[in-house]
Write a protein that binds this DNA or RNA. Structure first.
Length: 551
RNA sequence: GGCCCGUUCGUCCAGGGGUUAAGACACCGCCCUUUCACGGCGGUAACAUGGGUUCGAUUCCCGUACGGGUCACCA
């Protein structure tokens, strides 16, 4: 076979050579040890946890090593492309602090190794396609979809391995006349790789996450260029990651089976392969068994699910970090307020198996994350959430932000901050009683107390309450009420001899709490009253007295 | 079906030829506490399985089971 003739026949317009490409995209000038990596999503408009896991890993690796992270859009499948997907993706990742140093942007490209959208790179791919033909390592195949389906069916019947190889590879060694005839007839063709691999051979391989692997060589003549001249993932991966000088490829381990083919490609093209990190899939419990999270069945795979559920971005981020690097949790505990950059992310800490997604754990992480935020931050985050998911809440908070802030400041800060919120949907039930139109006067109290006691306690409070009291004076007054009513003001004394009292000061506090907040549980009463203000506290106490028929 | 990957408490996982197999979440108990939310202390609970190699295996090797992935002109 005259490969020069074939190459010119297939790619008459390609005049550039691989050497030209090398000159155009020279090696990067980076410090020793700098990692160059990328996110390479297809623009389907659906951003999921898997993207984030991969992106986070790449991002940390690059930015902690002083190398660039870039975004390459894998838009080789026009059928799946969704308009606007690139900006959706970039926006979503920006929230998660995954910022690109170069690559595709919302309206173009930034960087010296572009274009960063694969459909704009066809000329580049064709240079290498032609080169492979020239080397006798690629050939055109004119099989129709029907023919390929027939081959597959036949293989199935024969219990043979699937794929285009060996005797099934009917265009692999066709004479050039046949090829020319098909071409002249205008029939579509794909370019296939001429594999010389054998499934009898194993290739040792070292994956940075999975460790030492032994893979079977590839013997399939995979498609390099589709009939529209656009490359498949495999070919584009080899060409792009070489020319963009990627040093580390992070991807899901569903790519492991095609890795031998990729390695073949790199060798045939004369490229040095990058280092690979294959990440195990995120799993979930389904009945008694685990399975990979699926786009179809599992809403929690979509990033939008977390926002709608009220999880702060930072919670999802830190949860994923705990899943990715097992020592992150310990580090965070020891350094509650340190920036993420201070954490030494390491692929050596990554688990080769797939992690089970655990929403309980996410909630726990989230409680801690939110408890570390100051009131202004929480308010801002809640407003941002409520704006889209609870307009009523938004209106209440936004009407008086100073007031909202003072509510959220209760128990915040200090060594043992309150941990009331795992998600922002927890906020409204937590603070609704601070708003008069949400607050409901009640006359319900536990049955084992005498109504006269409740009334006397509330009246006693009204008689002595002064908003200006400090917390000790304030509580002493409540204790005094307790004593007067035969309730123990000293809890220790009460515990030693409960029979001697009608109740204790906690019960008195409960009566007040019910009056002021409408419920038996609330944040610290003193703080609540300070926020509510003297008039509203009194109004509410009187309202309960009224409802009890005691006014 | 072929090929590949994986398997330590319920879950996330640390460890790695000799350990009382660590921690976190969840659960339970106790303590602290005027309620709640925290916090503290403690507890239940794990090396899938069978063979090797070895003085000794959870750790290394082989098989089995189970789980997952993959076998497109999708990525």
């Amino acid at each position: 076979m005259d490969t020069k003739l074939l190459a010119d026949l297939l790619f008459p317009n390609v005049t550039k050579t691989p050497d030209d490409m090398e000159a155009l995209f020279p090696e990067r000038n980076l410090p020793e040890g700098a990692i160059v990596s990328r996110m390479a999503p297809s623009p389907t408009g659906f951003v999921h946890l898997g993207n984030l896991v991969q992106g986070l890993t790449s991002e940390r690796l690059c930015h902690q090593s002083g190398g660039p992270l870039f975004l390459r859009v894998e838009d080789t499948d026009a059928k799946r492309e969704v308009p606007g997907a690139v900006s959706v993706l970039i926006e979503a990742l920006r929230h998660y602090n995954i910022l690109f140093d170069e690559g595709a942007t919302i309206d173009g490209d930034a960087g010296d190794y572009g274009p960063y959208r694969q459909r704009q790179r066809v000329d580049i791919y064709h240079v290498y396609a032609k080169q492979l033909v020239l080397q006798g390592e690629a050939y055109p195949c004119f099989c129709t979809e029907e023919e390929l389906a027939a081959i597959h069916e036949q293989q199935s019947a024969e219990k043979a391995n699937f794929g285009y190889f060996g005797k099934w590879a009917i265009w692999r060694d066709r004479p050039i006349e046949d090829i020319r005839a098909e071409l002249d007839a205008g029939h579509p063709w794909v370019l296939r790789f001429r594999s010389t691999g054998s499934i009898e051979h194993k290739i040792p391989f070292n994956d940075l996450i999975k460790g030492h692997l032994e893979l079977t060589e590839n013997d399939i003549d995979h498609v390099l260029l589709k009939s529209d001249g656009i490359p498949t993932y495999h070919f584009a991966h080899a060409v792009d990651d070489h020319l963009m000088r990627t040093t580390h490829v992070v991807r899901g381990d569903e790519w492991l089976p095609s890795l031998p083919f990729h390695l073949q490609l790199f060798r045939s093209l004369g490229f040095k392969p990058p280092k690979y990190l294959h990440i195990g899939p995120l799993m979930k419990m389904d009945g008694d068994s685990k399975r990979k999270l699926s786009k179809r069945k599992d809403p929690e795979l979509a990033l939008t699910y977390y926002r709608a559920s009220g999880f702060p971005v930072q919670s999802v981020y830190e949860y994923l970090m705990t899943v990715l690097n097992s020592n992150f949790e310990d580090w965070r505990r020891a350094n509650p307020d340190a920036p993420i950059d201070d954490f030494k992310f390491s692929y050596k800490k990554m688990n080769p198996a797939g992690a089970l997604f655990d929403e309980m754990k996410l909630r726990d992480v989230s409680k801690n994350v939110i408890s570390r935020m100051d009131a202004d931050r929480v308010l801002a985050e809640v407003l941002d959430f409520a704006k889209d998911y609870d307009v009523e809440l938004y209106d209440h908070l936004a009407a008086d932000k100073t007031y909202a802030r003072s509510i959220l400041a209760i128990g915040r800060g200090g060594k043992k901050p309150r941990k009331d919120f795992a998600v922002f949907t927890d906020v409204r039930p937590y603070l609704d009683f601070f708003y008069d139109d949400w607050f409901r006067v009640t006359d319900e109290y536990p049955e084992n107390f005498a109504k006269s006691d409740v009334v006397a306690a509330l009246n006693g409070f009204l008689d002595t309450f002064d908003i200006a009291d400090d917390i000790n004076v304030w509580f002493d007054k409540i204790k005094a009420i307790a004593d007067k009513l035969g309730y123990a003001s000293d809890m220790k004394a009460f515990r030693e001899n409960p029979e001697a009292y009608r109740g204790n000061v906690a019960d008195i506090s409960m009566f007040l709490r019910i009056a002021v907040t409408g419920r038996q549980n609330s944040p610290d009463m003193y703080a609540v009253m300070q926020v509510l203000g003297a008039e509203r506290v009194k109004t509410r106490v009187r309202a309960m007295l009224g409802k009890l028929g005691a006014l």
